[in-house]
Design a protein around this nucleic acid. Structure first.
Length: 172
DNA sequence: GAGGCGTTTTGAA
DNA sequence: TTCAAAACGCCTC
């Protein structure tokens, strides 16, 4: 397992790689968003992993800009259960600028009643942003939850020109 | 509008 | 195997 930092205009993400591809992605910490990155993580990466990291950096910037990535790095989702992987597959098919509800997602995987389990699968998603769990909303347009924090979910949706029913704290 | 219950999956003991 | 928890949705009051 290799780890490296992915610098974007919105902060420094941390990517984790297995032999199969990208296996995990961490959101920038507050410190990393505000200050310079630490030296940790500068260890040399295998050439293949380095190439993946560049692809991921490009893909991340595309998604953060509200666009669908041109090239997509290989994703290693084998850590999840079969149900979770099915949910994550469906998530990857959601185009930029479009959203689905937890109930729609549940129907897509053939478990129309398993809306709560779908929420759990979204929360277990190891690769947020690239596996767009932020495009899953509650019925009625409410945000629901987000493992990286609702701030990130709101930001990502805003970049895609999606205006969910934001809580009144935003105003309006 | 608010609270309670139902359904499904997952992780721990 | 059993129990508790979870990024939900629907029904009832």
């Amino acid at each position: 397992m290799h780890s490296t930092r992915i610098t974007t205009p919105d902060g420094v993400f941390t990517a984790h790689f297995s032999d199969q591809g990208l296996a995990g992605l961490d959101f920038p910490s507050r410190k990393e968003r505000q200050g310079p990155p630490r030296r940790k993580g500068t260890e040399p990466l295998p050439a293949g992993v380095k190439a993946w990291a560049e692809l991921i950096a490009q893909a991340l910037r595309e998604v953060l800009a509200g666009r669908a990535p041109m090239k997509f790095p290989p994703l290693d989702l084998s850590a999840g259960t079969k149900f979770q992987q099915e949910v994550w597959r469906v998530l990857q098919r959601i185009p930029a600028g479009k959203t689905v509800t937890y109930s729609e997602l549940a129907r897509s995987v053939g478990r129309p009643r398993a809306v709560r389990a779908v929420g759990g699968a979204c929360g277990a998603n190891p690769i947020p942003v690239l596996v767009p769990c932020h495009r899953v909303l509650q019925v009625g347009g409410k945000l629901g939850g987000f493992s990286g924090g609702l701030d990130w979910k709101r930001l990502l949706l805003a970049r895609e020109s999606i205006a969910p029913d934001f809580p009144s704290q935003i105003g309006g």
